[in-house]
Design a protein around this nucleic acid. Structure first.
Lengths: 346, 346
DNA sequence: GGGCTCAATGTTAACGCTAACACAAGCTAG
DNA sequence: CTAGCTTGTGTTAGCGTTAACATTGAGCCC
């Protein structure tokens, strides 16, 4: 349509994209030599290589990956099956994976799950598999996901992120339990008699592990564990459970299983006129970028999402290269103390 | 290694995955008929079709997409080039795109940009193109991205999300300007003499449009526009600029260009002892899920990210199907009034 | 009942690339 | 000086699928 104004190297008027044969003809070599320049350049005489590279540039040649895949059986693509990539955690992990993958010349294809119905994971993996991915990373930290993971094709290289630990698949995860222990110990060390807990949804592995860590820290200090209150990760659920806790004058320390719930909790406490951290201390989990700006700035357990993403990718590479076994590697989270926790007033 | 315990339909011991020819042999037909069962089932006699489908199931056959791509030239894959998929906006759009794509039997491949250096977009598009994507959606709402978008191959179906409006590419966007106008008018209608603004980074199209909308609303009311304060989308920058604003007793209404900055601003005002909304009204932009739980709950402009993602996908489909021209379609954001804005105290 | 159409299926040849082997020329070693 | 190795390149075949054309047989019309 428009006149070619850019100094594009692609000859205008050309109708079909250049293929290897075109490059070969232009450089006066065979297609195979062109292929070698791409894959094993050291096996081509520098002079020839230069001619071929020049021809590629002149024709704006791009290798056709579909043909490559067909010929080699390797795609250089890895699939990520994830539940709700809108959440900060999954989004960050996806990002970490993508960055790591790029460094290793891999491309990432995604399959988001809308729901976690039975079979959803298998369907996601299937969609990716038919795209001939070299391997798959599953981000689905649900207990019910375990079932789906069990019945996956055993020949497909696969790594799960943050999954249950009794699975027959390799897992990369944050040590949620250790994080919960740290947060709870911190609150106890401030003189609180016990620590209440707003938990994540029942179905999540993360929730489970955090409840376990919280329980453990209370037990080792010889304290009773009050019933945890169930939330669903949303600020709203934190708010609702927070209203319950705010009404109970015995409550002086609360550990929320993630930051949005902590935010909701803070609002509930504020509305009930209970000062944080004067009357009640609050700790969260995730350490989202906004946590330092909550009212008050939130003490939270920082999850190294990006790092887990990189770890998962690395483990997947090992699988693809033929590693056996079902390792489980974890990354330690770190407690970041801010102003929402303080010594118990007497 | 382990004994086959699952009732997997794939015959154990089989070494190579089944291909079309295998299915054909088993069903007693030619490969072409199998292909037809997959692509144009109505052209195959029901009886034959059933036999073929049965054979597929028995052999756990999965079509090889690489071969399909090579033969047809269509991949059923679309690429998304995005800047920082960790941010709520891009993550939500990506999700919207993926969901829409799934409905149309498309798969999504991503290329995240680490930086927005010159050429980054082209490089991202190139990476995707060599994966033979059918089309590309670029999420890069930066002014500097414009340059990159200009020099893209004209034959590749492409849609930009939220890009500048003087570009030679189709654009799907939120009408940021209209959103800013609404927020500013709302604040003025509450009796504030003027509205201050914490802007996004200079380089973003979104920032620009929001500044323009804010300016317009002030101008139409005959008010002076104070100098906008530059932020970088982060809560921290909102906090820092907030300290400046909090120190100025003339300031009674602030419109922050996104919610995290509004959150930082709220903290700064709180620390300075200025009541919100008693002394100062605050409005944000994005309406993140946590906004209702800020202190106080934040009035904000809701961005329909998912909708924009769907719109972009739909526009891309039209491109792929041969549509011409460079349409620009926008979605109107909506103002959600909460407790952070109130009538000016006298 | 011969020629026609139409529906269902088969055959052949790509698609663009690379693995595997083949070959030529130059060099080394005995 | 010849067998044997090395280096650089070419040839052939095949990866799994579909487009395009070919074939077969049934049903129909005049």
């Amino acid at each position: 349509m428009s006149a070619p104004s850019t100094p594009s190297p692609a000859p205008a008027g050309r109708t079909r994209a250049a293929v290897m044969e075109d490059v070969a003809a232009r450089a006066g070599v065979s297609a195979m030599t062109v292929s070698r320049v791409l894959n094993t350049p050291e096996k081509v005489r520098p002079q020839t290589r230069a001619r071929v590279l020049a021809a590629m540039r002149e024709l704006d040649y791009r290798p056709n990956s579909a043909a490559r895949v067909l010929a080699t059986g390797r795609s250089g693509v890895l699939g990520v099956v994830s539940f709700d990539t809108t959440l900060y955690g999954p989004a960050s992990m996806l990002y970490g994976i993508e960055q790591a993958a790029r460094g290793a010349e891999y491309t990432v294809t995604i399959a988001s799950l809308r729901t976690l119905t039975r079979g959803a994971i298998e369907e996601g993996v299937d969609r990716l598999r038919s795209q001939s991915v070299d391997g798959v990373i599953v981000i689905a930290p649900h207990l019910s996901a375990a079932e789906g993971l069990r019945r996956l094709p055993p020949d497909l290289p696969l790594v799960a992120v943050g999954a249950a630990d009794d699975l027959p698949v390799p897992v990369a995860a944050v040590d949620h339990r250790a994080g919960a222990v740290r947060a709870t110990r911190h609150l106890l060390s401030l003189g609180h008699r016990t620590v209440h807990h707003i938990a994540g949804p029942m179905d999540w592995v993360d929730s489970d592990a955090r409840v376990a860590g919280w329980r453990h820290a209370l037990a080792e200090a010889g304290r009773e564990a009050p019933d945890p209150l169930p939330g669903d990760w949303s600020a709203r659920s934190g708010y609702e459970q927070g209203r319950v806790l705010a009404a109970d004058p015995e409550v002086t320390a609360v550990f929320a299983a993630n930051d949005p719930m902590a935010l909701g909790l803070l609002r509930a406490l504020r509305e009930a006129g209970r000062d944080v951290p004067g009357e009640v201390s609050v700790a969260g989990f995730d350490d989202v970028p906004e946590a330092p700006f909550f009212a008050p700035p939130l003490t939270s357990v920082r999850q190294p999402f990006g790092e887990v993403g990189r770890l998962a990718f690395q483990m997947l590479l090992e699988r693809i290269d033929g590693a056996e076994g079902v390792p489980r590697r974890t990354v330690e989270p770190e407690l970041v103390v801010r102003e929402s926790t303080a010594a118990r007033a007497d």
